[in-house]
Structure formats: structure tokens, C-alpha cells
Amino acid sequence: MRMRDTFLKPMHPEGRRFVGIFAAVTLGLFLLWEPLGWLGVGLTIWCYYFFRDPERVTPDRPGLVISPADGVVSLIEEVTPPAELGLAEDKRLRVSVFMSVFNCHVNRAPVAGRVKTVAYTPGKFLNASLDKASEDNERNGLVITMADGRELGVVQIAGLVARRILCFTEEGAEIARGERFGLIRFGSRLDIYLPPGVELDVAIGQTMIAGETVLARLDGAAE
């Protein structure tokens, strides 16, 4: 890998406008006072990296559930999925991945299948690391029906800073494992509602890489 590729990552098109705004403000800050201008340079670089969209190598072995988000596993518990997903009312294992403002925020499909449901729910903007954020915050949920008929739910949740959730897919669409399906601006969380009979492959505090880290194994699929 070339040194340039280590530092210069592809940027998602959604970030271009924001980087442009940060750069314009930076020019104004230089005119006011040079030290403020350099602060603006730092913030512009941060904004560019926030919207980075690097290529990922998704494992192609069958029976794997892949992390849909970069970040840290903040919660693992059995809960009833949100009503808007239309999943059975039985409790499911939920894995929550918290994304800080320094993580890549492009979200990727954890499994392949057909998008059965896309459900947006307005709400509050509590700290996304809190458990009640799953019920109270603005969110957008997807249900993906896999080839064997089982369903997996994944919910994008806004946080303290995030004010817009973007979803790039729609109901009825076929989606590949690791395919980009959404983005959340400036700090947030993803909840994954796993189908019954999976073998969990992560622990609280573990760092996740969207599209690459194995989150669970369907039916305990072997390595």
C-alpha cells in the first residue's frame, strides 16, 4: 500500500458539502486571526475523515453475520425488537455498536437478502450510548429476509450530535452482505436484532469494522 493511500481515504459524496462549508469558514477565520484559521484547518480535516468511505473486504464464507458499523460493542442483551420492525414479539439477542465522531459512519448490510421493511421513526437525540436511546431516539430500521426465510433487524439510531439518518436502500431491494445501505451524520449507534439460533462472536468493548468483523454465526457456522 502506498503511503498516500494510508492517509487519503475515499470520501462519501454526502460529505462534500460539509467539507466545503468547513473550508469556507476556515478561510474566513484566517482573515480574522491566523490561529483560528489553523483551528479551522484541523476541523476541516476531521470533517473529511468523518465522511471517509474506505473499501472493505467482506468475508464470503456462508453463515456469517458481519458488523454493519465501525465502533465499539456497547450493549449485548435479549430484548423485544421495536414494534415498527414487524418482527415477532419474542425477545431477540440485540448487539449495539456505538460510533463516536471519529469512526467511519457508512453503514453496511450484515447479511445478504431482501429488504422487507424500511421504517423511519422520529424521536429525541439522547446520548446514543444509553440503553433507552433504542426506544426514544430518532431511528431508521431495516428488516432483511435471508434466503432461508429468517429475518434480521438492523436499526440506525441518531445520537447527541447526529441530526439526520440517511438510508440508501428501499423495501423490496436485494442487498448483498457488506453492501453500503446508509449513513448517520456525526455520532450515533446501530442495533442488530439477531435471529434465533445464532452463535455470538463478539463481546462488550470489542472494536468493530463495518463490512469485515464477524458479529455472529448463523447456526454456529464453523470457521
Rank of each mutant, 00 (worst) to 15 (best):
K116V: 05
R150P: 01
G149E: 03
L130N: 10
P122F: 08
E135G: 07
D136P: 02
G141Q: 00
R150G: 06
V118D: 00
D136S: 12
L126K: 09
G141V: 00
A109F: 10
V118I: 01
N137E: 05
D131T: 15
M146S: 07
L130K: 11
K116T: 03
D131F: 12
T121F: 05
N127V: 04
N140E: 10
E135H: 11
T117M: 00
R150H: 12
T117H: 04
N140Q: 08
T117K: 02
V118G: 01
N127E: 09
A109W: 04
K116H: 06
K116W: 05
R139D: 02
P110V: 07
A128K: 12
D131M: 14
N127A: 09
M146C: 13
V143W: 00
N137C: 08
T121P: 04
G113I: 02
A128Y: 04
K124F: 14
P110F: 10
D148K: 14
E151C: 01
V111A: 06
L130T: 09
N140A: 06
G113M: 01
S129E: 09
E138Q: 14
A133P: 08
L142N: 03
L130P: 06
E151A: 03
S134F: 08
S129M: 14
R114L: 03
A133V: 12
R139L: 07
T121H: 04
S129W: 10
D131E: 13
V115H: 08
A119N: 02
S129I: 15
S129A: 09
R150V: 07
L130E: 10
K132Q: 12
A128S: 15
S134Y: 10
D131S: 14
T117R: 00
V115D: 05
D148I: 13
A147Q: 15
R114S: 14
M146Q: 13
G123C: 10
L126Y: 11
V143H: 00
E135K: 05
P110C: 02
T145M: 08
A109K: 08
I144L: 11
A128W: 11
S129T: 12
E151S: 02
I144K: 07
V111I: 03
V111R: 02
R114D: 10
R139V: 05
G149T: 08
N140P: 04
L130S: 05
K132E: 15
L126M: 12
M146G: 11
F125V: 11
S129D: 07
N127R: 14
G113V: 05
L142C: 02
R150E: 12
V115E: 08
Y120F: 07
G141A: 01
K116N: 04
G141K: 00
D136H: 11
N127D: 05
A128P: 14
A112E: 14
D148L: 15
G123R: 02
G113A: 09
K132F: 14
V115R: 06
T121C: 07
D136K: 12
P110Q: 04
P122T: 15
K116G: 04
V118A: 01
R150D: 06
R150I: 02
Y120A: 13
D136M: 12
T117Q: 00
A119Q: 01
A133Y: 07
G141I: 01
S134H: 09
V118P: 00
I144D: 00
L126A: 15
G113F: 03
Y120C: 09
D136G: 06
F125Q: 13
R150K: 13
R114G: 06
L130C: 10
S134K: 14
N140D: 03
P110N: 04
N127L: 11
V143G: 01
I144M: 09
K116F: 03
A147W: 15
